[in-house]
Write a protein that binds this DNA or RNA. Structure first.
Lengths: 350, 350
DNA sequence: ACGCGCAGTCAAAGCGCTTTGGCTTGCCCG
DNA sequence: CGGGCAAGCCAAAGCGCTTTGACTGCGCGT
C-alpha cells in the first residue's frame, strides 16, 4: 500500500482520521484506531518520511559531522560513541546522519545542514582549544551538544564531558600513594581540550605532593599504538627514567606496555602503568583483559548522554545543560610500589 | 530567505524558472541563470531537502545498518570503511544514514527503511555463511551492495570484496618459500565468510606444498588484541610449536607479537609473523610502524568502491556488479627463514 | 505575408503527509 | 423539549519543491 489516501479509502475513513489514529491522537475512538492500525499492518503501510518531514517541519534527524584529517583517519573512539548515541536515536525514533568531510569544510557543512533543513540538531565532536563551532552553531540557531568542552564560555551551551582533570589527578595521586615520584605522562595532543585538562590534573596532583613537574616526563602526541611505543621507549632510555607512567589512551597503553616488555620491565613490579580507558570495545582491556590498571569512563555512555540531551533540547524539554561524568579507577596488576627493579625479577613471579 | 516562492517573487520570475536555473536545466537562458544563482547566494537560499525529496521521490541517502552485538561492540574496521564511503557520498551529493540496531532487529530495520522510503539503497556489512539479507533486499526491491560476499549466489547481486582466498594462499606460500612447514593460522570467526575463505587459501597453499593441515595450528576467534595474545601463547606452549604464524587482523597481530615477545622470540628471527592488514588508520602498522610483514588491502578503498557501485546502480548506470580487490604483500621485518632459534640470537642483531 | 519552430518563461498540478477549523451526532441537563 | 457540549469524524489548506503542458515572442524559410 503506497499512501495514506489509498489506505483511508480502503477503510472508508478520511485521511485525517487515519493519520490521527496512527499518530495516537486522542480524538479518534479506540475502536477506529484499532481498525486503522490493523489495516495499516495488513497492508504494510507506513508514512512516507519525506512527506511527513515536509508537513511537520521536523526532520527527526541528528547530524554528526566528522572531519577527516590527513591519512583519512577517523578517531577510533568515534565508533563507540556512535554505538551509544545510535542506541538512543533508535529508541527515541531519530535518525543519525553522518557527514564525513575534509577538516576545512566543517563550517560549510554545518551551514548547509541548516540551510537545507536536513537535521534538527548536531553533535559536536572533539572540541579544540579555541573552538569556533559553538559560536557558529549558536549564530545559525542550530541546536547542538558538544561532546567535551571548549575552554571558554562552557556555561553558554550544552555539553557532556568526563571530568578529565579530576580523573588524571586521581590517577596521579594513586601512583603517588604507592610511593612513586618519577611519574611520566603520555598524553594526547594538547590542542584537544581534554588533553589539556588531563595534564592540569596530573600537574595538580604532583604539586599537591610537592613533586616538581618535569617536562622531560611529559609528552603530547597522537594517541595510537606506535606512538605510545616510541614515547615510552624514549622515556626508558633517559637518564632518570620514570618508575610509573600515566597514559591517556588504551591504544597508546598498548604501545607503552610493548616498550616496557621490550626492556624486560614487568608492569606492576618494575614499572607501574595506569591508563585512561575509554572502554573501547575492540580492545577489551581491563579486569580480564591485559590486566592494566585503568581510569575508566565508557565513551558509549557519553554518546548516550549527548543524544538524550540533544533530543530533549530539540523537543523543548530543556533539561540540564551539562553533564560531567566521573571516571573510576579500576585496579589491575600493572601498578604497584616502585623499586621492583631493585627487588629483582623474583617479585615478578609472585 | 526561506523558500523558492519568495526568491522567485523577489526576482520577478516564476518558481519553475528559478528551480530550473538552480538545477542546471538547459531551457533557461544563461543570463537568467546567473541572475538566479547570484540572488540565491545573496539571500542564502537553498532548497528544503524534505520538500525536494517528496517531489522527486529520491532521498539521495544511503543506509548502513550496523548490528550491535553483545558488549555493544561495533567492528572497529567499520570506521575506516565509513571514511571511504563517506568521501564518495560527499562528492556525489548523497547522505549517509547509519542505523545502529540490535542484531536481531536487522531485517525489520531494512523493511522499515523501505516502507518509509528513507533511503535509496543500503550497504550490507559483514556477510555471514548463510546470509539472508541479499534475498530479503531483493524481495524488498531495495538496491544494495554487499561488502564481502556470501557463499551462495554471489553472481546474483553486487558486491565488493577482497580476494581473501588468494591473499592467504599467497601469504602462506611466502612463508613456505622461506622454508617454514609449521605454519599456524590465527583466524577470525569462521561464520564470517571472509574468514572461511582465508582458511581455504591457507589450506590450499599448504596442500600444494604437500604439508598436512594441522587443526592444532588453527584457531578461529574474535579478532581483538587479547584474544590474539592468548591464542598465540597457547600455540607456543604446545609440543610442536609453529615457526611461523599467519594472522587475520592487525589487532590480533598486536596480541600475537606480544605473546612472542613474552616468550623471548624475536619476530623475523625466532618466529615469522605475517598479518593481514586492513590498513586501520589508528594502528598504522606496516613499513614504518611495528615492522610487520603484512598482506594489505585498504578497507577505506573497499568503502569507496561500495559507495560508487551503489550510487551507480541507483542512478541507473548499472556498472559492473562485482569488484574483487587484490591484497598485496608488504614485506616487513617480522618474517624470515625458520630456525632462527637454532641459529641463535646473534641473527637478531643483524 | 504567413506559418513554423525554437528559446524562454509560466501557471498549475502534483508529491504524501499534518493540521486547522468545521460539521454531525448523540446525550445530558435544566 | 430544546440548548449545550463532547466525541468522533471530515474537507481542505498547507508544507516547499519538481515537472508537465502550455503560452509568448521572435527569427526564418518560402
Amino acid at each position: 500500500m503506497a499512501n495514506l489516501k489509498e489506505l483511508s479509502e480502503k477503510l472508508g475513513l478520511s485521511q485525517t482520521t487515519v493519520s490521527r489514529a496512527l499518530n495516537g491522537y486522542p480524538e479518534v475512538s479506540e475502536a477506529t484506531r484499532q481498525r486503522v492500525i490493523d489495516a495499516a499492518r495488513e497492508h504494510n503501510y507506513a508514512p512516507n518520511s519525506s512527506a511527513r518531514r515536509l508537513a511537520t517541519g521536523k526532520t527527526r534527524t541528528i547530524g554528526h559531522v566528522v572531519p577527516i584529517s590527513k591519512h583519512d583517519m577517523i578517531n577510533p573512539h568515534f565508533t563507540d560513541f556512535i554505538a551509544g548515541a545510535g542506541a538512543v536515536y533508535n529508541r527515541r525514533g531519530y535518525d543519525m546522519l553522518i557527514s564525513v568531510v575534509d577538516a576545512d569544510k566543517e563550517t560549510e557543512t554545518y551551514r548547509a545542514m541548516k540551510r537545507n533543513r536536513r537535521v534538527d540538531g548536531v553533535i559536536v565532536h572533539g572540541p579544540v582549544a579555541n573552538d569556533a563551532r559553538p559560536a557558529l552553531l549558536k549564530s545559525l540557531d542550530l541546536p547542538f551538544v558538544v561532546h567535551g568542552r571548549t575552554l571558554q564560555d562552557e556555561a553558554s551551551y550544552c555539553w557532556v564531558d568526563v571530568n578529565n582533570r579530576r580523573a588524571f589527578a586521581e590517577a596521579t595521586r594513586h601512583l603517588i600513594g604507592l610511593g612513586h615520584r618519577r611519574i611520566a605522562l603520555v598524553n594526547g595532543w594538547e590542542h584537544m581540550v581534554f588533553a589539556r585538562r588531563r595534564r592540569e590534573g596530573y600537574e595538580e596532583a604532583l604539586r599537591e605532593a610537592g613533586i616538581a613537574v618535569d617536562p622531560l616526563l611529559m609528552s603530547s602526541n597522537e594517541m595510537i599504538e606506535p606512538v605510545g611505543y616510541e614515547v615510552m621507549a624514549a622515556f626508558l632510555q633517559s637518564d632518570d627514567p620514570p618508575t610509573a607512567v600515566l597514559v591517556a589512551s588504551a591504544l597508546s597503553a598498548l604501545g607503552v606496555m610493548g616498550a616496557a616488555r621490550e626492556n624486560d620491565l614487568v608492569p606492576g613490579t618494575d614499572i607501574s602503568i595506569i591508563s585512561y580507558d575509554d572502554n573501547l570495545s575492540f580492545l577489551d582491556i581491563g579486569p580480564d583483559g591485559m590486566g592494566l590498571t585503568v581510569m575508566r569512563s565508557g565513551i558509549g555512555e557519553a554518546g548516550r548522554h549527548c543524544a538524550d540531551m540533544l533530543i530533549d533540547m530539540i523537543e523543548g524539554r530543556r533539561g540540564a545543560g551539562h553533564k560531567l561524568l566521573e571516571a573510576s579507577l579500576v585496579p589491575g596488576t600493572s601498578t604497584g610500589p616502585p623499586g621492583g627493579a631493585v627487588a629483582g625479577k623474583s617479585a615478578a613471579s609472585r
